[in-house]
Amino acid sequence: MLLPKEKLSEALGALAAEANVIAPVKWEGDVFFMPYKGGDVCLEGNGKLPPKDVLFPKTEKMYSYSIAKGTMTEHNDAAATILFGVRSCDAASIERLDKVFLEQGYKDGFYSAKREGLAVIAMGCDKPMATCFCTSMGIDPMKAEVADVQMCPVEGGFTVEAVTEKGKEIVKKWDSLLDKKSKAKPAKVECSLNINVPEDFEKKLMDMFESPIWDDVTKACLGCACCTYVCPTCYCFDINQDVHGDEGTAFRCWDSCMFSDYTRMAGGHNPRPSKKERLRNRYLHKLAYYKDRHGKYLCVGCGRCIANCPAHLDITAFAEKAMEVE
């Protein structure tokens, strides 16, 4: 089935009537996933920031309390949301976050409430960017992992294919707009940036913990948190209190393993004192630790860290250098 290009904003308008729709929109010169308020959507490249803050917001109130009364009220108001225009790499990152927040030991109440209310309309990629390398990380640009509706750009519009029950309901709403006869198929797409990741690369990386390669790979790093905050699969957070006299609110907010106080303990001891240990921990988490635990790489090849790194570091250049080390 095909949704003609010019009918797209009408289709999104129909969805926006019932649930809030988040779509890639041009704002202040870049593309961001923002609430859709009519107008056209920008489908070149990918969002500057990943859509992860729909499920894992930058700052999220957890519970408010009154110290005198000793009362505690939880904040967990998750509205139904439809996420449109999600590329396969970001969809894969949602699947990685699901494993952490929904399975790893405990189910996170805040995340799971948002996740149940979320419908993902994935959009295939016909023109990957120079920094994209999702195909090297085993991700198909035209087939997203957690998509409820899979759309792919073709000549004159987008193929539409409902994958789950939620997807069928959405496609039902678009019934009048769809051209059912079209048999258009999306063309195969290959990323220009490729690394061939060897078998059990994570075992090799974990044995390289003491190797001297880390000194010169991390030397140019500035130790900022740019790569972690643009990364779709980074999920570290900090818990803090916003206190006003007798009452206060505990909130959780994005945090980064690249910050100096991330692992600093009360007595002052810090197992990761300098940017070398921190960047090593970040690279190993992406390419080794997560795979050792869940069987898939935590890096989905979206290339945002390569595009935004102030010192122009590059996780794929690191991976290739690590492959040469015996």
Partner: peptide, 8 residues
Amino acid sequence: IGKCGRCN
């Protein structure tokens, strides 16, 4: 609860 990533 094994989510915030810092005690690894």
